[in-house]
Design a protein around this nucleic acid. Structure first.
Lengths: 117, 117
DNA sequence: CCTCGATAGGTAGGCCACCAACATATTGGG
DNA sequence: CCCAATATGTTGGTGGCCTACCTATCGAGG
């Protein structure tokens, strides 16, 4: 799959994987990969700027945690983030419905006994 | 809806509306608009370059037709175009499945009485 | 001890598909 | 005559994701 295809839907993906529990960046990548059955492989250059942006927007909140001597930046969904995620889910459904109805239109009456297709 | 959202799916949309019958550019715009229930409004600056590209790729074939004194360039799906459209439909399903499974994961069994999972 | 792969976080620059704006021409109604 | 709708295109800009790169820690193996 073209990785570029996530364009416009990245924010929703990030917020969605953070919904059950906070995660750090590296874990977000693997979570998206696993949830999508390996289809989506986000890059660090993609998610870190996005996570910063989402935090600036108040949709995420990050805290530094120490796992051993290693530092992790853990991202958690805020209430605004949860609301935004709900909107993104609605937008996603509208989007797929729109594209889908063009790509696979409902057949205009296949006509059981007409002078056929 | 962000028009930009069609990014990466435009080719499929164009081929799909040309599947039932050939259309000229202006009619393609209105066809996509109608089929999507008004959600998708493509611009001339979007579709004309795309149509030219698809013709160069051999997925479309165009013919100039005269409606009165007015000239129309009519685009028709080629066999290669029909095959490409089939691939695009498959890719669309894979894409929505991937994003969808991240955005709306199957709930891991709230489970009334088991130590599930 | 040193190296290497996995883990972890991050920046800089490039690409390209789509968009906004513009240009042109015909037809028909007010 | 002028304007809106129909009809086809081009040019330049933008923005979001990717490629490539950099730093650093930890554990395993040589």
């Amino acid at each position: 799959m073209r990785q570029d295809a996530v364009r416009g839907h990245l924010d929703g993906l990030l917020l969605a994987v953070l919904e059950p529990a906070p995660l750090h960046g590296y874990a977000i990548i693997t979570a998206v990969q696993q949830r999508s059955g390996g289809a989506l492989e986000l890059r660090t250059g993609t998610i870190y700027p996005a996570l910063n942006r989402l935090e600036r927007l108040g949709l995420l909140r990050s805290t530094w945690e120490a796992e051993g001597g290693r530092k992790r930046r853990c991202y958690a969904l805020t209430e605004a983030g949860a609301r935004f995620l709900a909107d993104e889910r609605t937008a996603w459904q509208d989007f797929t419905a729109a594209i889908g109805s063009v790509l696979n239109p409902v057949a205009p009456h296949p006509h059981p006994h007409g002078q056929g297709a």
